[in-house]
Simulated scan of single mutants.
Amino acid sequence: MIYIGLTGWGDHDTLYTEDLKPRDKLAEYSSHFPVVELDASFYAIQPVRNTLKWVKDTPEKFRFVVKAYQGMTGHERNEIPFENKEIMFQAFKDSLKPFQEADKLAMVLFQFPPWFECNRENVNYLRYCKKMMDDLPIALEFRNQSWYCEKFRESTISFMKQNGWIHSVADEPQAGEGSIPIVPVVTNSSMTLIRMHGRNVHGWTKPKNADTNWREVRYLYKYNREELLEWKERVLELSKDSKDIIVLFNNNSGGDAAGNAKEFQQILGIEYEGLAPKQLGLF
């Protein structure tokens, strides 16, 4: 099965009426798409009351891709607010329980930062993460191209297969060391993740501290039909070896993610059942 959705549900204004309150957006989002990436979990481990609400707001077949907390992926380089890593990982796993109990957890996404390069220390840390996450489905996405350079590419893929990692295949600007190429390879026969970041090289390389609006340009990109047709062929090929595929559009600096996701759904000829009922307008 191919599931198409977006990263986050709060900023996709084309899906919502102007008077829709933020607390009601997820319920409305789930009338359009069957899956979403939860980004709030990256910035802070979420209290169970939040996850319980999100489970309640979505239909039975809805699924969440939950982004791993930044302290677990090395994005947070200051002191983490936990006594040690074991306590941090356990707190994160506890926050997932409502998703698990409702059978709404698709996977946890470990997206590592651009400075997380291919070396022995980091390979060992990946083993540690896999051990700490027990049998939970976890996906792996790199942001440093050393993992897929000629020297390490096959070893990286083999390592992911042997350790049960779900491959997060990224479409992103080719902007040097801090980006990775498209590597359409299945590493876990149960599931494959695809994240569509856009191809805005200027926005991708813009320093985060250059101004306060780096998010407004980093993912400023609208995929054209030819690019989406290229991805149709890749997805269909990947589906031969992967039971489920989740495609998430993250190109929303200009509000293009939802439109591209719906266009891609149309290109693939997919109609989803079991979505939430859409809000009814005045007429």
Rank of each mutant, 00 (worst) to 15 (best):
M1K: 04
G10E: 13
D11E: 13
H12F: 05
D13Y: 08
T14K: 04
T14N: 07
L15Q: 01
Y16H: 09
D19Q: 04
L20M: 07
D24G: 03
K25E: 12
A27C: 06
Y29D: 00
V35D: 06
F42V: 11
Y43K: 14
A44W: 14
A44T: 15
I45C: 12
Q46G: 02
W54F: 11
T58E: 09
F62Q: 01
M72Y: 10
M72H: 10
E83A: 09
E83C: 00
Q90R: 12
E101H: 04
L109D: 13
L109I: 05
Q111F: 06
F112Y: 13
P113E: 07
C118A: 13
R120L: 14
Y125I: 00
L126I: 06
R127N: 12
R127L: 15
M133Q: 05
D134L: 15
I138P: 04
A139L: 13
A139C: 10
N144A: 01
N144Y: 04
W147K: 04
R153E: 06
N163E: 15
S168R: 08
E172T: 07
G178T: 05
P184Y: 01
S189F: 00
L193V: 07
H197W: 02
N200L: 02
K208Y: 06
N209K: 11
L228H: 00
L228N: 06
S239H: 15
S242D: 05
I245T: 08
V247H: 03
F249M: 14
N251F: 01
S253V: 11
S253Q: 05
G255Q: 10
A261L: 06
E263D: 04
I267P: 12
G274E: 11
Q279T: 02
L280F: 05
